[in-house]
Design a protein around this nucleic acid. Structure first.
Lengths: 241, 241
DNA sequence: TACTTATTGTCTTTTTTTGGGACAATAAAT
DNA sequence: ATTTATTGTCCCAAAAAAAGACAATAAGTA
């Protein structure tokens, strides 16, 4: 199936994904740079096949970009202003027929289709950044992690999409116990706390944080982690629920 | 503009509204009965014009059904399973060309359009039930309030849509201070408490409920309400924020 | 008019949750 | 053996939530 063959997809409806990862004490988002000049950046996105649920479409798009199939994923908002039209990419490609043929856009009507008004369903995903090797689609020049506090200017309302996704993540992190999806299989209590501090951009009291988390009864305590530092070795934990 | 002329609308994308009202200690939802046999029931819904934002489309649909323009409205979930196809109405109308012409469906291709797969954006609305005089569209046989605990079986996933809307309402009622949208301009503390009890389907302690609500500092206390009952007259309150 | 009844508004007490301070335990360096 | 940095846990105070208590009052009844 051609990537952008309009026949296969629901028209004027797209999915955009805010893929959160965490490394170096910083919450990050996966952003693509499109292979046109001048440069434009976008969130990973795609369309919905006629025979496919929207959740599975989002999972397919995530797999295309991350290689991962078992990802925490949540629909969070629909963006539907009538001016959601992808001028930047359309105009960047219009005069470069060779290029958009290479990109898998089969004909000019499919190119025009990309430049029609789209309603987009926003999903956010939480991934273990160590497991992801970002992949580009034919459309992309690159795909990289950016700190959520230092994102490039993206097309249309994609920066707003990230803002709303982060708001939703903050509301859900505690209640739904989903933070573990951003960490490796095992982690120390300090690492978990640092993740919370990165997401909420505020410090937590160490003693009370540990008590709160352990009282959830969702962590399994494993062996100690000897770091070689001149101090007591912390326990490793694993999410277990 | 014809009501169901497929040219004007985004294809395969619809809006369905869970319109909540409150009366007689019961939370209610506005449900339409479609003018076909055998009878089928649906949530009020509609489509999105090419030049219209999804939020304004939802407001237009609400106004068509309630006559109200200033309504509390919130997008809460998108329903996108690939089997969301309106068999019931399509088959009920197919052999009755007179009827669907009367209903504003201009040609058979528009009728077939109604029977294609639709992704639907769920909105919920909170209204003062006393201000609403339910209106039917050309498609409807009737439009009535049903207790949320005693809804008729509706088409497709519309019953699930109500379940999810009620979950969202329960999560938001306290935090966003939106319950007042379900009550008349002025109300007693007991009436507000009874509304909360109807939404959450559980009792609240009278003393602590009053304290919690007044501590929000969003109510203005008005004159007393003399009911003629043999007891102390309660104050009336008005939401004021 | 005095008494009764049902409900309201508010205050007090008790219980639970949250936040802050303290300190012993400990792994490795000195 | 001593020092250092960090961890795990306990204790106590402050705040919030839940439960209990009671006077005030509008209208009916004797």
């Amino acid at each position: 199936m051609k990537l952008f063959d309009r026949q296969n997809f629901i028209h004027q409806l797209s999915i955009d994904c805010v893929i959160f990862g965490y490394a170096d004490l910083v919450l990050k988002v996966l952003v693509s740079r499109v292979n046109i000049t001048p440069a434009v950046w976008t969130l990973p996105g795609g369309f919905i096949r006629q025979d496919e649920s929207i959740d599975l479409a989002a999972r397919r798009i995530l797999e295309e970009r991350t290689g991962l199939t078992d990802i925490y994923l949540e629909q969070y908002h629909v963006f539907g202003e009538p001016n959601r039209i992808n001028h930047e990419i359309f105009e960047g490609l219009l005069t470069l027929k060779e290029k958009w043929l290479d990109m898998g856009i089969p004909d000019e009507s499919s190119l025009h289709w990309l430049a029609s008004r789209f309603v987009s369903i926003g999903y956010y995903a939480l991934v273990d950044i160590n497991k992801v090797f970002p992949r580009k689609t034919e459309l992309d020049e690159s795909a990289d992690w950016y700190a959520v506090t230092d994102l490039p200017g993206m097309i249309m309302d994609h920066n707003l999409m990230v803002d709303r996704a982060l708001e939703t993540l903050r509301r859900n992190l505690d209640e739904k116990l989903i933070g573990f999806n951003l960490l490796p299989e095992t982690f120390t209590m300090r690492e978990l706390q640092e993740l919370y501090e990165a997401v909420y951009n505020k410090p937590f009291a160490r003693n009370n944080f540990q008590k709160k988390i352990l009282d959830l009864n969702v962590l399994e305590r494993l062996e100690k982690k000897f770091t070689g530092a001149a101090n007591k070795a912390p326990y490793l934990y694993r999410f277990n629920r």
